[in-house]
Write a protein that binds this DNA or RNA. Structure first.
Length: 827
RNA sequence: GCGAAAGUGGCGGAACUGGUAUACGCGCUAGACUUAGGAUCUAGUCCCGAGAGAUCGGGUUGGGGGUUCGAGUCCCCCCUUUCGCACCA
């Protein structure tokens, strides 16, 4: 590196090496003077090559980390791997590589990429969810939750491929068929494990209000996902089943007398009994089976037709005493509410559509004393047709919630129903019929049934020696060595559970493990957790807005209830960076950068050609980080040119004269830039920070060119430029800093502070407006009072010209900025 | 349909609490240095009109209205785009 041209390859290799050797980011969590906990999302080491779009997340985080470091915060910035998952198992089936080897290989590749981006992680805290030292604590957590009734088993449908005789993930089902063999997929009920997240629905909802450091967007998405709705459940007796009744949930109990039929989900538990003696039973069952096997996406789709069958059974509307038909239909979902609805066609568009289609009665509910029927609550179509109009038997029905509340009380008095809140949120299904995940630590014994694995027998390790065919179910269930075990209670031969856990279990508590990654005795250290939690800054993609972030909030509350963490919320501040897009030749559109769309840019080639610093600066400069940004191949060179100019400036510094007239001007620019860049960093506005630094570089370049600043001033400005630029372009700045003769690295320097006094000018430019229009600029003393300013303004010939003799009715002075003369008499 | 965010030059985008709209960069144009350059440097670059010229006048932040001395920014209506959710009873 003896020559003077900018050899980015040599510079970057040198500093990446040095940071690695110095282990530049390590923090002793026990002695951290200045707690600041940063978190990048827990990446999945997929086999796909990383592209520059992925880089945005990490580059942004690293810029922030370096900024914090220079501001005296020894931030904790760990990285680890969400290493379990489906792609590893697919790779094993397709390429015969063991999931573990495949995953470890990918981790290596990704770490190397991080190194080449110049990103500093605290690798002494590295964790990987596929290692027994990590996943044993998933198992431990599971056992604790089982103990508290937060983990339980129930029947739930899975996608089943009869061809491969195996369970498929939703993404493996293409157009209702198995992606591998093309056999139509059917729904099959299996007993599966769940976490009772619905018990925490209200707390998860309430907690969102306190999360001031989260984007509104994400909070709204979580609120909608939880989907709390208030209403009532109402019982409709079934005369044919004696004491049984159908319980429905409704948000509009006040319309119950308009209920002209009931609709049950085909999966509703009462259905088999209702059709027990019927002649067309077989026909109905076949139809139910067909609906059940309709892929969920299709069944829930907006445009899929409503289909239903009359069960030929009657139910009693408790309020009207009328007998109404009971139907089953595909548009009623078993998971929501009670899996049954009262259909009020006059007040619900879906019920109306169905009633029309099937020729069912429509009854409008209104009160005789209401002059106008509440049109908003009623389907418009009803108004145009003859329908039965009926007054409710209860005279409290008017507008609004209060009425509904009183109505529910009335229902409760009569014993016909009661208040109820339901959630869209369902319990978290954690069972996966897969090999590559955390084994669920329970054993089945003929005598004792399901027996939890005792804590001292953890971890239940995944066997390595397993065969991957993609057929005949879970590979784990074919491993004799794994399945065959002894009952922990009686020692009799028993079978292990072969379901493994959803990887969202792994990622819902990893931030706690970073604090004591090698602790063999505990999931994490509660003392350290209390000290470091919540995470101060979490950075990641919007794609995790709901599932991951909701599960992590849930598990944090569970751990809080266990007394292991000090707060219910894991992440105080959340930042979601936008995606990088690029024009795709395939589709002819600008789209999210991805391998399948063929519009990726490889960091390898870019780094080879222009360097990691160029990629970093461009990525930060491209636009506001929370928004999407379109990658432009040409614009990248702007960042490269900027860095080259900075590089060349070093050898131009000696050209500056010992003393110079406009010293103060450059000094003001320097301080203004410090202020702007610092402020930009605090707002995550990296694009404007880069712009400000380009401006300072331009100013310095001009000063050198025109010899208007002294040598010392130029050197000082250059040094500041290097410091401010360091978080974005760490390699080149460290190299130049060293060449400037400093022995201490830039990371160890403290972030420059601006001096208000240096920003002040003796004379300032003031904008002059006449009736709000810009007419002139005048120079006045910075200390001038209103009278003096006014005198200076009126002295301007241009102003006089535009006043054209009119009288000034009012003069508005914005100190330091402008004066507006208002004439406004005749106008 | 419901919810959220956003519309500024040829392009990506600046403009902190209302106060010089278009910073910075890309692209483009002209010139310089070059055997050459997709290298580098210099100058110019929102639109319309006037002027040889420095300059001068007018207009412009999706459209319309309002508040204000003053609106890209605040309020109301409309249009468009993007994202999220959805047979949720």
């Amino acid at each position: 590196m003896s020559n003077n041209s900018y050899d980015h390859k040599a510079v970057e290799a040198k500093w990446q090496d040095r940071w690695e050797k110095q282990r530049a980011a390590e923090v002793d969590v026990r002695h951290a003077r200045d707690k600041y906990y940063m978190l990048m999302m827990f990446p999945y080491p997929s086999g796909d090559r990383l592209h520059v779009g992925h880089g945005r997340n990490y580059i942004l985080g690293d810029a922030l980390y370096r900024f914090l470091r220079m501001n005296g915060k020894r931030a904790l910035n760990p990285m680890g791997w969400d290493a379990f998952g489906l792609p590893a198992e697919n790779a094993a089936i397709q390429r015969g590589v063991h999931p573990r080897d495949w995953t470890l290989g990918n981790i290596k590749v990704m770490k190397e990429q991080f190194r080449r981006w110049g990103i500093l992680y605290d690798w002494s805290k590295e964790v990987g969810s596929c290692f027994p030292e990590y996943y044993r604590w998933n198992q431990w957590l599971f056992l604790r939750m089982l103990e508290k009734g937060l983990a339980y088993k129930k029947m739930a449908p899975v996608n089943w491929c009869p061809g491969c005789r195996t369970v498929l993930a939703n993404e493996q089902v293409v157009d209702g068929a198995c992606e591998r063999c093309g056999t139509p997929v059917v729904q099959r009920d299996l007993e599966q494990w769940f976490f009772r997240i619905t018990d925490y629905a209200d707390r998860l909802l309430a907690g969102l209000d306190g999360l001031e450091g989260w984007p509104e967007k994400v909070k709204t998405m979580q609120r909608n996902w939880i989907g709390r709705s208030e209403g009532a459940e109402i019982h409709f007796p079934l005369p044919s089943l004696k004491k049984e009744s159908v319980t429905v949930f409704t948000t509009r109990p006040d319309t119950v007398h308009g209920a002209t039929f009931l609709v049950l989900a085909p999966e509703h538990p009462l259905v088999p009994r209702l059709i027990a003696g019927r002649s067309n039973r077989a026909e109905i069952e076949a139809w139910i089976e067909k609906v059940r096997n309709t892929p969920r996406i299709e069944r829930e789709g907006e445009n899929s037709p409503k289909e239903g069958l009359d069960l030929g059974v009657k139910a009693l509307n408790p309020v009207t005493g009328e007998e109404i038909p009971v139907w089953i239909a595909n548009y009623v979902l078993p998971e929501y509410g009670t899996g049954a609805i009262m259909a009020v066609p006059a007040h619900d568009t879906r019920d109306l559509a169905f009633a029309r289609q099937e020729g069912l009665a429509v009854r409008l509910v209104y009160h005789p004393e209401d002059r106008e029927v509440d049109a908003a609550t009623m389907t418009e179509a009803v108004l145009h047709e003859g329908v039965i109009r009926d007054a409710p038997p209860f005279d409290g029905l008017r507008d609004g919630k209060e009425t509904i509340g009183r109505f529910i009380e009335w229902l409760e008095e009569k014993g016909w129903g009661k208040r109820r809140v339901t959630y869209r949120l369902r319990d978290w299904l954690i069972s996966r019929q897969r090999y590559w995940g955390t084994p669920i630590p329970v054993v089945y014994c003929d005598k004792h049934g399901m027996v939890p694995v005792p804590e001292d027998q953890l971890p239940v390790e995944l066997p390595y020696d397993v065969e991957f065919t993609g057929r005949e179910g879970n590979p784990l269930s074919r491993s004799k060595a794994f399945v065959e075990t002894k009952c922990p209670k009686c020692g009799a031969p028993a079978r292990r559970e072969t379901d493994t856990m959803d990887t969202f279990v792994d990622s819902s508590w990893y931030y706690l493990r970073y604090l004591s990654p090698r602790d063999p005795n505990r999931m994490f250290d509660p003392e350290l957790a209390k000290k470091w939690m919540p995470v101060d800054q979490y950075i990641g993609g919007i794609e995790h807005a709901i599932l991951h972030l909701l599960y992590a909030r849930f598990i944090c509350r569970v751990l809080f209830d266990f007394g292991l963490v000090g707060g219910e919320e894991p992440f105080a501040n959340l930042f979601n960076q936008g995606m990088i897009t690029r024009f795709s030749d395939k589709s002819g559109r600008v789209e999210k950068m991805s391998k399948s769309r063929g519009n990726t840019v490889s960091p390898d080639e870019l780094i080879e050609e222009m360097g990691a610093d160029t990629e970093r600066v461009y990525t930060l400069f491209i636009g506001p980080p929370e928004k999407e940004a379109e990658w432009s191949d040409e614009a990248v060179s702007g960042a490269y040119r900027f860095l080259t100019r900075v590089w060349r400036m070093l050898e131009r510094l000696p050209e500056a004269p010992p003393t110079a007239p406009a010293d103060a001007e450059l000094e003001r620019d320097r301080h203004a830039t410090i202020q702007r860049v610092t402020h930009s960093f605090q707002r995550f506005s990296f694009n404007t920070a880069v712009a400000a630094l380009m401006e300072l570089s331009n100013s310095l370049s001009r000063a050198l060119e025109e010899k208007t600043a002294s040598r010392l001033r130029c050197e000082e400005t250059f040094d500041t430029l290097l410091q401010l630029l360091h978080p974005m372009a760490p390699h080149i700045t460290e190299e130049l800093w060293e060449r400037r003769g400093y022995t201490e690295g830039l990371l160890e320097t403290s972030w420059p502070e601006h001096d208000e006094a240096k920003l002040r000018r003796d004379r300032i430019q003031l904008v002059v407006q006449v009736d709000g229009k810009l007419r002139d600029r005048v120079e006045v003393d910075a200390t001038a009072d209103e009278r003096e300013v006014r005198a200076a303004v009126l002295a301007s010939p241009k102003v006089q010209e535009h006043l054209a003799g009119r009288e000034v009715a009012k003069a508005v002075l914005v100190p330091g900025r402008l004066m507006n003369l208002v004439t406004r008499k005749s106008a």
